[in-house]
Design a protein around this nucleic acid. Structure first.
Length: 636
DNA sequence: TACTCACAG
DNA sequence: GGCTGTGAGTA
């Protein structure tokens, strides 16, 4: 007989219960040197090219081909070139100061940090592409960062064992082996708390785990119960998904499969690249005691808190024995809790801890389980976004006054609009931020000031340009306030940051109902436009005057038929020569626009219009038509 | 709500 | 070291 019950197996079919079942099966998949892989594929390079992804002069990702030369993330571009003369250094995409769209950087080019801002958009996109592949197969995926995800494999394993699976095609022998259990399930010839029958004969041969199986050196590993079979099938599933990722994107991944998140995460990191590591329940201690990990390698224990715990539990330092030490010294939870609290009290005379005494018990519970590989947490499919920020660290005089702040805010507003739009299109949801915040940083890192306020999506329908302007318009008064208070001490800034947060996420086409049960908002299913209820009259009037004056400007310029006028931005030129040079600029711009996903037929605001708006915002209110027109006139 | 800090990749 | 992100604490 099995030591597991039907209930524990059936719980796998329930998203709420699967993670805590003793038969749980969780995968963690991690992209290897993700940015470098994205750049390698994006620039049509080969896996054998020593690619590094570069931001200014520092390296942010090192491909495995480049690692062969001993290059690490700590190298500068120069020192990496010394180690590998034919290094392929790819700079990240960038925004130009004052522009709304990012452009890929051609190979061999290195933009100046003084007038550019890095865009990580290409990587985010690829990250989402991969997430979607996981979601195509698996019903419960938690994106942990741009390049890693947790997967609750419960339902998939359940399907393989008890139903017909279309994810893993079973051969005749495999089907035959599972015939009995499937029949029992189908005919319900069991009580829920009955023990399961023994695992089928030859399970181990028929369902071999795929990947790097952790086991005791030199000894045979033998499947004995259903948890072994579940983990083995989990490894078949992650293998299948990783192969799908590879055929779709050419990206290599590493992966860990075990019964819980923290273990799978450590396992996925164990052997890289392109390898999955499988930890059967009976091999957990062997894995944790293999001399490769510390208590501080567990998620959330990597920082100060982890150090404090090592200290409080008097763990041996530098010999990777902390996990073993804690497990062997305190076989009983209560003893561990008492030991930590006693020492906490003793030490707190001399030092302050990052967590209060009352948290010791829950900390110990977690540590007690972590060191036994039995700390279980649910896989949460996380919301699309909580906040979105665009930020730049400044050097030199890159941001020396309010006008510079405004120029960078254009970039930030452009980036945020771009990213929100992308997310909306991909998820078919509307993302409506409710608060906005601007932060400035000066010389010493610690002096950061921020100002935030409500973000009012006022208009009943909003184009992308209008949304961009609204972000910019809302940000400028905030930065002006900061400028007013701190201008004597902060310039030149060492950092500027714009954050949208508190997102309301609404399914397109669905109707939100307010507290009186009336529809609050309406959306056209086929429309990408954002429709919202009107706001205060005052707010509307303010906007209207702005948009009207802007339209009028456009018209005014169009009227001047006698000169050379660009038909895209209505800028005037003295002669055909200047005009055609200017057209080249639009050609380049449009290429980027295509890349950024803005449809070409939509008008976008070009740089000269942006400058105009900056000045208007800074001037404080709507300027006269005359002066607006002046900005559109050629300089000469 | 506004702001700061810790942690992570 | 630069650029993001999240969650918790504080007033």
């Amino acid at each position: 007989m099995s030591k597991f019950t039907w209930r524990e197996l059936l719980d796998l079919n329930d998203k709420e219960k699967a993670w805590k079942s003793s038969l749980s099966c969780i995968g963690h998949i991690d992209m290897n040197a993700f940015f470098a892989q994205v750049d390698q594929v994006r620039y049509n390079l080969s896996v054998n090219d020593p690619v590094v992804s570069v931001q200014w002069s520092s390296i942010i990702a090192v491909s495995y081909a480049a690692r062969k030369y001993g290059i690490s993330r700590l190298d500068t571009l120069e020192s990496a070139r010394v180690k590998c003369p034919h290094l392929v250094a790819v700079h990240t995409a960038t925004f130009l100061k004052g522009e709304r769209i990012w452009k890929s950087t051609p190979l061999g080019k290195f933009p100046s940090p003084y007038e550019h801002k890095v865009s990580l958009d290409p990587y985010r996109r690829e990250g989402r592409k991969i997430l979607q592949i996981f979601q195509k197969h698996c019903d419960l995926v938690q994106k942990a960062s741009v390049d890693e995800s947790f997967l609750d494999l419960g339902r998939l394993v359940f399907k393989v064992l008890l139903l017909d699976s279309d994810e893993v095609m079973l051969n005749e022998q495999q089907l035959e082996a599972l015939k009995e259990i499937k029949a029992m399930y189908k005919t319900q010839k069991y009580s829920i708390d009955d023990q399961l029958p023994p695992i089928p004969k030859l399970s181990q041969d028929l369902f071999p785990a795929i990947g790097n199986v952790i086991k005791e050196e030199g000894s045979a590993f033998i499947y004995t119960d259903w948890d072994d079979l579940v983990i083995a099938i989990g490894s078949m599933l992650t293998d299948m998904m990783r192969k799908d990722v590879f055929t779709e994107t050419k990206y290599f991944t590493s992966c860990g499969v075990s019964n819980n998140k923290s273990l799978s995460k450590i396992a996925s990191d164990f052997k890289k690249p392109d390898t999955q590591t499988i930890i059967f329940n009976k091999a957990i201690n062997i894995f944790l005691d293999n001399g490769c990990f510390e208590l501080t390698d567990f998620w959330t224990l990597g920082g100060n808190k982890g150090k404090e715990v090592l200290d409080l539990l008097e763990c041996p330092k530098f010999d990777k024995q902390s996990i073993n030490h804690v497990r062997e010294t305190w076989p009983v939870l209560e003893d561990l809790q008492k030991a930590m609290k006693d020492r906490y009290v003793d030490l707190s005379i001399f030092q302050k801890f990052t967590f209060p005494l009352k948290d010791c018990d829950s900390m110990c519970l977690k540590i007690f389980n972590l060191t036994r590989g039995s700390w279980k947490e649910p896989v949460n499919s996380r919301p699309l976004v909580k906040s979105m920020t665009s930020n730049k660290n400044m050097r030199g005089d890159a941001c020396k006054d309010l006008a510079d702040c405004a120029s960078w805010l254009q970039v930030f507003a452009g980036e945020l609009e771009l990213r929100i739009n992308e997310l909306q299109e991909e998820s078919n949801k509307l993302l409506i931020p409710k608060t906005i915040s601007v932060s400035i940083r000066s010389e010493n890192r610690s002096s950061i000031h921020s100002k935030s306020g409500p973000f009012l999506m006022g208009r009943s329908s909003m184009t992308r340009d209008e949304f961009f302007l609204l972000i910019f318009d809302t940000a400028v008064p905030l930065v002006k306030e900061l400028d007013m208070v701190y201008k004597d001490t902060v310039y030149p800034l060492t950092g500027l940051m714009l954050t949208l947060s508190n997102f309301e996420i609404i399914g397109k086409g669905s109707t939100i109902v307010d507290m009186f049960n009336r529809p609050k908002r309406e959306f056209k299913d086929d429309s990408k436009e954002i429709k919202l209820q009107p706001v205060a009259e005052k707010e509307l009037k303010k906007r209207k005057t702005f948009f009207d004056s802007s339209l009028e400007t456009k018209k005014n310029v169009e009227d001047e038929k006698d000169s050379f006028v660009c038909d895209e931005c209505f800028k005037k030129f003295n002669d055909q020569q200047d005009l055609s040079e200017h057209k080249d600029y639009h050609f380049a711009l449009n290429l980027s626009i295509g890349m950024n996903g803005i449809e070409k037929h939509k008008t976008i605001l070009n740089a000269s219009k942006l400058d105009l708006m900056t000045r208007k915002r800074l001037a404080g209110d709507q300027s006269k038509k005359k002066s607006i027109k002046d900005f559109f006139s050629p300089k000469r």
